[in-house]
Design a protein around this nucleic acid. Structure first.
Lengths: 146, 146
DNA sequence: ATTAATGCAAATTCTTTGCACTAAA
DNA sequence: TTTAGTGCAAAGAATTTGCATTAAT
């Protein structure tokens, strides 16, 4: 289920960062790996009842900073986590079944270059989420419940 | 301060929608008009202490649905409201001073067309926020406090 | 009159904090 | 040892909900 780097790789990055590799962190990592394509902090917390809620949030935040996970903004405004493909990318979010697909094409910064040069705005970053119907859901009238 | 359509225009649209033009709604509208370039629900609520919190949120939601206001996702993940320029557009958010600029160029859907056709994803919408430094803040080392 | 809209206060949801405690290094 | 990391429970924010009440048409 996990799509990111190997556990060993993440552990290595934690150490490089000067972070300790603790049991709760490994548990959160394992829970995230099992939580499916995209998951909420609550989804993770539910899978590790023996780990404190705060630790779950702290660990998720750390993993996002490390670019192990990324955050996805759903159609309804709620936030989810997802294994990051490392590096800048965007999401195609299916509004019918909730599936998320990554894409890296279409460098938006590049596209914005001319525009932002015109008004003298220096782009530091951007956030783009694309909503629609995935292949499966655009065939059937309505996809999964949500 | 307000950049959207005239109050009369909004009232008209409320009526067209079958919504009543009530005193609290007008108060929220006025508060939003005075709240500056972009504001939180709390900013509006503070300006209309005589209007119930729930009504503020209900009204803001209604105004977003009506495309009178739009929502801006700030760099830190917090949500703000802003007068909408009506129709699809995006924001350039200055990470130094917080100023928000609209832009309509660079139709992302168009750019995504080829990509999404390749993987058979039908785009229904997208959300794009661009972060960086506005003209004023890219000159000075650091802009306003926040 | 009707019934949409409101106000209030409680309930939710999601996340962070304070702090004594535990365990990696 | 030392101090990063943890757990708990409480505190917060940002909204939302239930429901009796009010007011716009």
């Amino acid at each position: 289920m996990r799509k990111g780097p190997s556990l060993a790789g993440i552990v290595q990055r934690l150490e490089d960062r000067g972070c300790r590799v603790t049991a709760p962190r490994l548990a959160v990592l394992a829970a995230a790996a099992d939580a499916g394509d995209q998951f909420s902090a609550e989804d993770v917390a539910r899978r590790v009842p023996h780990v404190g809620r705060a630790t779950v949030f702290r660990t998720l935040k750390l993993l996002v900073e490390m670019d192990v996970l990324c955050r996805v903004l759903l159609d309804d405004g709620s936030l989810r986590y997802r294994w990051s493909r490392r590096g800048h990318h965007h999401h195609l979010v299916c509004t019918a079944c909730g599936a998320v697909e990554d894409f890296t094409l279409c460098d938006v910064t590049e596209l914005l270059r001319e525009l932002t040069r015109a008004i003298n705005f220096s782009v530091e970053g951007h956030w783009l989420e694309v909503y629609g119907r995935c292949a499966a859901c655009s065939v059937q009238p309505v996809g999964a419940p949500a």
